[in-house]
Write a protein that binds this DNA or RNA. Sequence first.
DNA 1: AATTGGCAATCAAACAAAAAGAGTGCTAAC
DNA 2: GTTAGCACTCTTTTTGTTTGATTGCCAATT
Lengths: 341, 341
Amino acid sequence: MKLSERKKKILQYVVDDYISTAQPVSSKSITEKYMQGISSATVRSELAGLEELGYLNQLHTSSGRVPSIEAYKLYVTELMDKGGLTRKEVGEIKKAFNVHADNLETVVQNAVKIISELTDYTSVGMAAHSKKEKIVKLDIFRYKPNQALLLIVTENTLIRDKFLDIPEAMTDEQVKEAGKLASSYFTGKELGEIIKLGKLVEEEFAGYREIFNSVMNAIEEYVEKDKVGVVLEGEGKILNHPEYNNDSEKVKNFLSVVTSKDKLADLLSEENDDIEINIKIGGEDADMPKDCSLVTASYSAGGVNIGTYGVIGPLRMDYQKVVSVLEGVGKILEDILTNKK
Amino acid sequence: MKLSERKKKILQYVVDDYISTAQPVSSKSITEKYMQGISSATVRSELAGLEELGYLNQLHTSSGRVPSIEAYKLYVTELMDKGGLTRKEVGEIKKAFNVHADNLETVVQNAVKIISELTDYTSVGMAAHSKKEKIVKLDIFRYKPNQALLLIVTENTLIRDKFLDIPEAMTDEQVKEAGKLASSYFTGKELGEIIKLGKLVEEEFAGYREIFNSVMNAIEEYVEKDKVGVVLEGEGKILNHPEYNNDSEKVKNFLSVVTSKDKLADLLSEENDDIEINIKIGGEDADMPKDCSLVTASYSAGGVNIGTYGVIGPLRMDYQKVVSVLEGVGKILEDILTNKK
DNA sequence: AATTGGCAATCAAACAAAAAGAGTGCTAAC
DNA sequence: GTTAGCACTCTTTTTGTTTGATTGCCAATT
């Protein structure tokens, strides 16, 4: 099962070539483009070997080879060259972040946009909700006889508006009081801390127990998965790639995932805590569109996770470029955020 | 230029048939399906007349007829049958609104979703921001040395988070004071009223003039066009329709409009004040995808406009169904909102 | 034992020609 | 005004042929 050096090289060439041309790769083209000293017959037997091992596929007997999912996996982990960004690209990224950012969501928007532009793939991002964030402001006030509006602002300026069901019998005064109590109780606390508190609340604020529990639920929901904060860009770019050009089933499938913020939030929040760059290939995940790859990166500033960004595209994705861009954006973003804060 | 009754009937049949089959309509099929007592030759001469008048087109000499944009226009205004909704559909709509609505955006989301489901087209909605809405709460507080966060809550529970640039020299106290002043000044006022006030502010609150102006800008922007409030559903459904199936250029075009909330907000806020159902056909508008139709409806409850909803799809859209659904959803939505309030 | 040149076999893609079919427009008759 | 009939047009489908790319295998070579 161990691959010879030459097999690896050849596999790399096949994947490289297939990524850039979208055409099955022939033994001849390999000898011409990459390995002049060797004959095509030799490459052919190597290719046969790689196919045997499950790294390559043939569409029909007399066609060139196409990489298998296994091949892509090996490619991203071992085979591909790590390319950096050009000066120009770095410049473009910096410029993209230079525009006046109105709020945190705008920053995410900018990041996602430049990623999509530089890679030419659909890109997606989500600001992280660190459990270390503190609540800066909390307010509750009556909206309808049986509903109150909950307002939470955290350090990172993310705001949550949510309705709470309240008993009609409550007077405006009581609602106000509940708000005051909740505010003095929650303000200044870290989100994670609050979640951990769990059921303690029941005893202390018996009168407003329901309300307190609703507030805690809202906070928990917000930290765990904030689908509202998912930003998407370039959803149509999938059509720039030939494998999606005449297959509207595939496109439909792709769009159904990509346009569901729920699903995207799920995908982006998977196990990204410690890993920096994360590549998920093929339709292993129920939420992933079949025949797609997802490359994600988690960014942090000052040791705190500040968000997850990613690119979704065809299996035949330019991983090298994508990884470079994600790393580049991450670095610049982190610089900006650490300096500004 | 006046159409005979029979010409109108025939034109209606052609459009009906084309809408349901997506195939050019032949004289023979008309006599078979719709006008048994008449011969195909007669229909042919009528069709030739309608073509003369610009209502029909032929793809080539020996093909059936296809409706022109003019034909669609006439169809929606005069020709088409007005069909209602089935009991089942009404039931589905009611069910869709029965789920617990967390906030106003959820209501919009539900409406858009059920519209998309029932029509099988991409649908879009935007809550209206009536100038009559009053500000219920307004708050300003410091976020960074040179930025403050502005928070506005209106009767309809829409909240806007927005950063204001402030001089670093301002003390926290001053920010607080500005907030208090702004709150007491703006709270209770109608949005329209505030916009009209315009520059009066300059004199009165000289010390915090900048801040007051920023607040007013934010309010104006919010009333004029709130792109954040645009909700979209079923963007992939365009692919269910054959004219988009093998034309990825068209799809790309469509997606580029539909995925831009800016453009959608523009489209939805055009001149919808007094008209109830508004049909825009073909690519007259720069913001409209070419070869698309947009059907919008403005809903109101208690005399106040509460939002605009619409369906975007191919020219060959099932207008009858779409109009029925939009009307049906509007009616039910209005009922719910007027009762609840 | 690995490599190579040569060659038949395979298969998709491109092309061409022919046949089938759908629909029209026109005309002469009703 | 309506209709049957028919020639004509143009697309679609079918069928067959050619071309070209590529492989796998084998025997010869290094």
